[in-house]
């Protein structure tokens, strides 16, 4: 998950609107409150969103612990905890999105939480909403690509990669890594899909090669070559 910013005092508000981070982390809230007043729906949405981000961070941590655990009992316990936390996060993001329908970050994380719970159709709908509110939203493009993988929609995941590649090579690389993971899983259970895995493997390898070769065409790559 992207880096989240610590939140303080979500109960009182300034008149000036706080901004939230582009990456979809927590939204900043005012540190000092000159007066007390009623919270608006947008304020409540931000508060719910920030609750959701906290749940997601805990859930991601539990999921990572589950994947690393050797003991089956511990693995299972951590996995269940992760699912419970993703469920709480999903509730928070649903609340945030219902309070402020125009908050792309809430829709993006609604998609993320849904995907982590295996609710891929709901996840895709949420990502679509996020992208309609914020065209080119790289985080949503990447998460949507991973949702496509969850549904074995490989050509859609490949298109998501290409959409990301021209604007955010870092996230494109992350999605390519997820595609490699998907491929490894499918290789382990070859009967589970009718997709030609060799074709997918060839595509992934060619994209990795292109990305490596053309790194000098990026902004950072160009600056490095002329430093």
């Amino acid at each position: 998950m992207r880096t989240a910013v610590p939140v303080s005092c979500a109960c009182l508000l300034l008149t000036a609107l706080p901004a939230w981070s582009n990456g979809g982390g927590s939204m900043s809230m005012p540190q000092r409150m000159p007066e007390v007043r009623q919270q608006s729906p947008a304020d409540l949405a931000r508060s719910a969103y920030n609750d959701g981000v906290r749940y997601v961070k805990k859930a991601d941590k539990a999921q990572a612990a589950s994947l690393e655990a050797k003991d089956p009992g511990k693995k299972d316990k951590q996995a269940k905890e992760a699912q419970e936390l993703y469920g709480k996060a999903l509730d928070s993001f649903r609340q945030a999105a219902s309070l402020d329908f125009t908050m792309p970050e809430a829709w993006n994380y609604l998609g993320y939480s849904s995907r982590k719970l295996g609710k891929y159709d709901e996840a895709l709908a949420a990502y679509e909403k996020a992208l309609s509110l914020k065209p080119g939203y790289a985080d949503a493009l990447e998460y949507r690509g991973e949702a496509f993988l969850g549904l074995n929609r490989i050509s859609d995941a490949q298109q998501a990669y290409l959409d990301l590649y021209s604007g955010d090579r870092g996230l494109a690389g992350k999605l390519l890594g997820a595609m490699k993971g998907w491929l490894a899983t499918q290789r382990a259970n070859p009967a589970s899909t009718a997709i030609n895995l060799d074709d997918v493997d060839k595509w992934i390898q060619e994209r990795a090669q292109i990305a490596g070769q053309t790194a000098s065409l990026t902004r950072a790559g160009t600056a490095a070559s002329w430093r």
Partner: peptide, 23 residues
């Protein structure tokens, strides 16, 4: 070749709306 002919235009550093990548 790409040591010099880097960048989106294969001409080394460039400038766009975000600014220049270098001299």
């Amino acid at each position: 070749c790409s040591g010099c002919h880097s960048g989106i235009n294969f001409a080394g550093n460039w400038r766009d709306a975000k600014g220049a990548t270098g001299a």
